[in-house]
Nucleic acid binder design. Sequence first.
DNA 1: CGTAAAATTGATATTTCTCAATGAGAGTGG
DNA 2: CCACTCTCATTGAGAAATATCAATTTTACG
Lengths: 237, 237
Amino acid sequence: MKPSVITIEPNGHFCSDCAVRASAVCSSLDPAELREFEHLGRRVHFSSGETVFSEEDITTSFYNVLEGVMRLYKLLPDGRRQIVGFALPGDFLGMNLSGRHNFSADAIGAVTVCQFAKAPFGRFIEDRPQLLRRINELAIRELGQARDHMVLLGRRSADEKLAAFLLGWRERLLALKAPSDTVPLPMSRQDIADYLGLTIETVSRTFTKLERHGAIEIIHGGISLLDPARVEALAAA
Amino acid sequence: MKPSVITIEPNGHFCSDCAVRASAVCSSLDPAELREFEHLGRRVHFSSGETVFSEEDITTSFYNVLEGVMRLYKLLPDGRRQIVGFALPGDFLGMNLSGRHNFSADAIGAVTVCQFAKAPFGRFIEDRPQLLRRINELAIRELGQARDHMVLLGRRSADEKLAAFLLGWRERLLALKAPSDTVPLPMSRQDIADYLGLTIETVSRTFTKLERHGAIEIIHGGISLLDPARVEALAAA
DNA sequence: CGTAAAATTGATATTTCTCAATGAGAGTGG
DNA sequence: CCACTCTCATTGAGAAATATCAATTTTACG
């Protein structure tokens, strides 16, 4: 939310040894293309709570998340907030039709992104259909996630919402880190509430309830999944 | 839900005078391409209530809606249903990454689709990046709609949900028909409830409430927007 | 017409929210 | 190093919104 103090790394970064090389949009590029692509992106750091872009801002850049977690959200005029997703390394942000962002994005903890100016990136895509195809794949994947989330928001109880969230979040982290029954939760309870369409109090009570039932243990900065099967049963599919 | 009795139109249909020519995926094709494309699609009719495809079915075709309205939905194992969207003429259905549909689609009233077998359609796209770009545009548009809908499901009251639905639905029809304060609602109250994350009783009561307040009039097969400004105020953004 | 399905309405139950108080952890300055 | 303060999280009590259950009423259809 503070004005963002941007650090632009001068040089010394190569796509070829980028952490998200294999999973991000750039996975569609061959080594030669990658060297050209390298000149388009700049690594930019954001610290905890900084806003990377805001809803309704004119889109000047696209972003590839390299490190950290971001919250993506929309606000109603009266301040109610709905988090529409959390972005993790490999996620590509900024695509839209209107020329304006249709949600806001903040860093949760320290974040590094690879930032591309819109125009040169657009030109680069122009004659690289396989990059376009990759972007399309990511969009379709997100659309699937969005639909799953609609089911959660519209048809699940508070218990089911939290259980499904914990499992889904663990699942996403699995693609990035070694599997573990310890699930780090870098976002606040309020973030979780705004993601699940609940209040912070309900989220807190539901955590406590899951813990009392022996399904999880609340630890510092996350939870420990004591009884994954039980949490899965609670998530009801 | 009944097994679908499919009628395949033999011939006599040309993309060039298709109703959705200007808005659908095919708007990206030039006349020469269009003649080739013509051989890929078949017009197929579905009658009210028929299922066009089901979640988890292996994707064998893509669909371009030509006429009518479809409900797109996901079911939880215990039968709870969330409608993730209504498809209208010009909408393109069936894209996914897994090779299986990730939602089900039923006809609401009579529906005509242009059906494309997956493999030949895939091959046709292969060397037509502008078609891919068009598909990507449609995906991004849907993603935006999905995010808006998450806000509705997670953060709006029943009154706001219904008001926002009526305005949004009117808006979508506006692109297809002449603007009118009479808003046809071909879907059932249950469909509306499952779209808004409410029960049918709450939807019914909220309609009645809007009518008592003079904001709308409930008419056969739809509503009349008596006081659009008031409904907009209720929708709260 | 008569029957079935859909929609409405009412009474009550339940879930989740709201408001309020308390507790715990992180960082700061004495 | 310790009080202080700030933010975040938890807990409790009561209120409100929406769901559930049940009964009509209306509409659709054979």
